[in-house]
Structure formats: structure tokens, C-alpha cells
């Protein structure tokens, strides 16, 4: 009963991370188009975009932060695996739970600070240098991506503890 409800939650979480990954995918294709188009404008039409790199930079924030929860949910982060046999089943479980607790805490701090920063940037009207685009939405994206990562970590802890085994 309990495990089936946690399965349902896990599925919902997968859908959320994937949905955000599609946003990242849009951002990625936009980046490709933006960079290639910028080159085209400059060479073929001699129209440079002053501050085009600001668009590239902000798009990169969306691409990376929207992809991070998906990356984390897919367990794509690189770790050292050589000591696994020595740790034993309980050692691996303890290690996985501990690293996720600590990482979740640090990302939680990041979310909190990023939210404050987004509010701050919005209140003071912080904008990019050349194009004067508002910066606060991008701190908000950073906060959202990191927050969903924290949820992913929490879910991975629940699943590992329920199974009594590291993934």
C-alpha cells in the first residue's frame, strides 16, 4: 500500500522533471539557432546584435537549470565506484542516504538564497548591461531547478530506504 503510493509520487516526479527537461530542450535549440543566426546576421547582412551574448548567457541559465532535475533523477552525476564492494549493502545505502541528505541541504540553501536574490533583483530592477533585460526571472529559474532537485533527492532517499538497498 505504502510502496504503491510512493510509486505514484515517483511517477509524478518523473513527469515533472521531464516536463522541465522539455523546457531545457527548447532552450537548447533556441541557443543553437540564436548563435548560428547571430553569425549569419553579422556576416551576411552586416547587422551585429549588440549584447547578443547576453541572450546566450541567459538562455544557458534556463538550459542548465531546467535540465538539472532531470539529470539528477536519471542519476547521471558521476561518482567514484571503486569502493562499492568494500562498503557492503548497508554501507552503500548509508552512503547514498547521507550524500543525498547533505546535498539536499546545500541545494536547499541555494534555493533559499536564489529566491531572496530573485526578489532583490526584481525590487531593484536589476537588468543586463547591454540589452537591459530583467535578471530576476533567471534567478527564479535557478531556484526552481535546484528546488526540484531537492525533491528528487528526497524521493531517492525514500525509495532507497523502502527497498533497504542503494540504487
Amino acid at each position: 500500500m505504502r510502496s504503491s503510493s510512493s510509486m505514484a509520487w515517483s511517477k509524478r516526479l518523473d513527469r515533472a522533471t521531464l516536463a522541465l527537461a522539455w523546457l531545457a530542450a527548447l532552450g537548447l535549440l533556441f541557443l543553437v539557432a540564436m548563435i548560428a543566426f547571430g553569425v549569419l546576421l553579422r556576416y551576411v547582412f552586416a547587422i551585429p546584435i549588440l549584447g547578443a551574448n547576453e541572450i546566450v548567457e541567459l538562455a544557458a541559465v534556463v538550459v542548465v537549470m531546467a535540465a538539472l532535475p532531470y539529470c539528477t533523477a536519471e542519476r547521471a552525476h558521476v561518482g567514484v565506484d571503486v569502493f562499492d564492494p568494500m562498503l557492503g549493502r548497508w554501507g552503500r545505502l548509508a552512503g547514498d542516504v547521507l550524500s543525498r541528505l547533505l546535498s539536499g541541504f546545500v541545494l536547499g540553501v541555494l534555493v533559499w538564497r536564489a529566491v531572496l536574490k530573485a526578489i532583490d533583483a526584481w525590487r531593484w530592477g536589476d537588468a543586463t548591461n547591454m540589452l537591459s533585460m530583467p535578471i530576476w526571472p533567471f534567478y527564479a529559474v535557478l531556484a526552481a531547478g535546484a528546488a526540484l532537485c531537492v525533491v528528487v533527492f528526497a524521493m531517492q532517499i525514500v525509495i532507497a530506504v523502502a527497498a533497504g538497498e542503494a540504487a
Binding site: 553579422r42 552586416a46 551585429p48 549588440l50 549584447g51 551574448n53 547576453e54 548591461n129 547591454m130
Partner: peptide, 19 residues
């Protein structure tokens, strides 16, 4: 180096690139 300098270079006829 700055937006104002970009406007200046543009007015002089050049193509400003920020970097």
C-alpha cells in the same frame, strides 16, 4: 567595455561587440 562606449562606437560607424 560598456553600453555607453557601445553607443559611441555605433555613432562613429563601427560595430560594437561586447566581450
Amino acid at each position: 567595455p560598456s553600453r555607453n562606449t557601445g553607443k559611441l562606437v555605433e555613432a562613429w560607424g563601427g560595430t560594437p561587440v561586447s566581450m
